[in-house]
Design a protein around this nucleic acid. Sequence first.
DNA 1: AATTATTGTGACAAAATTATGACGAATTTC
DNA 2: GAAATTCGTCATAATTTTGTCACAATAATT
Lengths: 223, 223
Amino acid sequence: MYQINILIVEDEEKLRKLIKKYLFLEGFHVHEASNGIEALKIFDTETIDLVVLDVMMPFKNGYEVSKEIRKTSQVPIIMLTARSAEDDKLQGFDVGIDDYVTKPFSTRELMARIKALLKRTNVTSTNEKMQFGVLSIDTGARRILVDGEDMTFSPKEYDCLMYFVDNANQALSREQILNRVWGFDYFGDDRTVDTVIKRLRKKMGVEGDRIQTVRGVGYRFEV
Amino acid sequence: MYQINILIVEDEEKLRKLIKKYLFLEGFHVHEASNGIEALKIFDTETIDLVVLDVMMPFKNGYEVSKEIRKTSQVPIIMLTARSAEDDKLQGFDVGIDDYVTKPFSTRELMARIKALLKRTNVTSTNEKMQFGVLSIDTGARRILVDGEDMTFSPKEYDCLMYFVDNANQALSREQILNRVWGFDYFGDDRTVDTVIKRLRKKMGVEGDRIQTVRGVGYRFEV
DNA sequence: AATTATTGTGACAAAATTATGACGAATTTC
DNA sequence: GAAATTCGTCATAATTTTGTCACAATAATT
């Protein structure tokens, strides 16, 4: 049980710092990004539990950023939007936004929305440590140990393993895996999954055969 | 056991596809209709476990559709409504709506409502665990244990057993089995079934003779 | 009891599916 | 901007599945 990590993506520094301050006071661990590119970089390297995302930003706007994020993650996202037009909202839901706050807003309102969303999505803490035989997974640090040794798993490998872990003992079809790990809009070969599985098994060493192949379907991670 | 079948009735294609994606990710089997007429047609021909119904639609609006459905079925219905007016809701409950989601909504919310409604109405999911003597079937894991030991069933064997289990104590003709497990477009020998039965019985061990042969017809799985 | 019809079963080869190593383009890291 | 890493695709190998057949076994019928 540790601190909850929140990423604020907002180009206007003053506003960003203000939100940060309030979030900090509420006990959250805050990461900042002033544009979309930076946001995605942070999101990939840090463990983020919730994203506060401004729509209007240079380089990559909020919709694009959330679209990117949704390719790999179901992290709750709150959008800050200046306009309150209905079509704005609809567009937002298309890219997987969970909630909206329309500018100008009170910090009180934003805090309430964030807390509500966290509650709704059952985010409690992220620093989970899991153990499967000699395989230890530290989601907080995004680190995996095999037999005590630090193994570097590539993003795809890591995400895939996480999906398996989250759905332990469930037969998962290649399509399901593709959709979750690669995203809806991936149009590659089914067999790509096989290759990642191959690499996963190898890196997992003796625990490699926790990943069982389910013929005619896909794979299953056994605990 | 089969997947849960959900029918989405929504004229706005983008939104419909979006909902479909999320439902698919949750493991549901999704049917789509873009208007009321189409919806009723699908409802009559397919087995539907839950309906997501938009109020505002061309040809036949949501109320009319649900009224039609309620003439023959108590299937759970969730209404998507743009307005949040109270009288709207009242009108809905009159025609037998089970729950409401007001637009705009987050996919997360809709998923939560659907799951809650399925639970409330006791629609069982695919993750069933069944027990027949020393034979345990875990459909989620697509795994079969015989006397505690993990037996790998080939796709045909598994599908065949599932068909038997779903139609326990019923005599099933070879033709029925072929149609269901192999598909309508299979043109092989009737006796192919015999071979799969042979293999099934063997793998099922002591529970093998739950599969009784019905001379002149086919087979029957006894519970 | 003999005959006929139907089902059980082992063997086998074709077909289908999955595993794996290699390669190069794309991306990231330093 | 060079080096390293990641990742999708492909070709090939390895493995599993599956349909068919021949013949054995069993049940029904005459």
